[in-house]
């Protein structure tokens, strides 16, 4: 078996193994590999320490009147909050047209200076897209190496 750490192609295998997400056959193959691979054993030991530390972690006990004090504080802050927000809004009101104009200028200059850049999307959207690309590339690599849809291809050709 090729070493997941050396090839990096299968690095996530080790993480899945440590999280016990692999199927039995893959687990067996990986464990057999680990018997002869110090790097993978060391990785497993490190992950085990981490999981053990997380298992051993216990939240501090909270005092009996914690909830009551928490709700009282939230209430106090929300009561004070609307007054503060109103005052802040009033003090900024004269500056609103200037701020709006500045925003327009900034947005305009950004668009003019970056006509072909990747559009400004949220980090979550970027992460999702990266994951999609990664998954698609995984599948494409699989299908490039193994023609797993041969029968379907054949039957669609005869249709």
């Amino acid at each position: 078996m090729t070493c997941p750490i050396e090839t990096r192609e299968n690095a996530e295998l080790l993480l899945d193994y440590c999280a016990r997400k692999l199927d039995a056959e893959t687990t067996r193959l990986l464990e057999r590999h680990m018997q002869g691979c110090p790097a993978c054993r060391e990785f497993r030991a490190g992950q085990k320490l981490l999981w053990d530390a997380l298992d051993a972690w216990e939240a501090m006990p909270v005092s009996g009147d914690f909830n009551r004090r928490l709700y009282r504080r939230i209430e106090e802050e929300s009561r004070a909050g609307w007054r503060q927000r109103l005052m802040a809004w009033a003090s900024w009101r004269p500056a609103l047209p200037v701020a709006a104009a500045a925003c327009l200028v900034l947005a305009g200059s950004f668009i003019l200076r970056n006509p072909a850049v990747v559009p400004d999307v949220s980090p979550e959207a970027v992460v999702t897209e990266v994951e999609q690309v990664e998954r698609t590339l995984d599948d494409l690599e699989m299908l490039r190496q193994l023609n797993l849809v041969a029968r379907v291809e054949d039957s669609s050709r005869t249709m």
């Binding site: 299968n10 295998l13 056959e25 699989m142 193994l146 023609n147």
Partner: peptide, 30 residues
Amino acid sequence: LRNRYELFSQLPPERQDQARRLWRRFTMLM
């Protein structure tokens, strides 16, 4: 490859997942 991908995408999700599991096992061979 795009054609293959298109056909693969039409398989039921369980079959796709099974294929990926087998692929993983395949990549672990020398």
